[in-house]
Amino acid sequence: MANWIDACAAEDIDEEDVIRFDYDGRTFAIYRSPDNVYFCTDGLCTHEQIHLADGLVMDHTIECPKHNGQFDYRTGKAMRAPVCVNLGTYATKVEGDRVLIEI
């Protein structure tokens, strides 16, 4: 069942960047791509549970702030060691100036 949650303002995230969003005991990372599309993944890296919101967004990848694991944040796919487990991803939509995520 679709459960759309209002997560942040569209302007809260810089272009090609990421922020943290916590909801109901869970934590997420919400991204704004260089072409202004919003994406959402699980917040914690699958290697050592480090929050990805402190990581570096370049093009369509997020690099974990700790051990340099990389994911494609559009699909959650693990791209570089040490990570080998993919991230969960969540649908997003923009309504007015708000970003919503489906969880």
């Binding site: 929050h51 402190d54 990581g55 570096l56 690099e63 702030p65 700790k66 340099n68």
Partner: peptide, 14 residues
Amino acid sequence: RGNAIAKDIKLAQK
């Protein structure tokens, strides 16, 4: 504190 400097170090590497 934490990973406060991580992003800048990664960019420095690049």
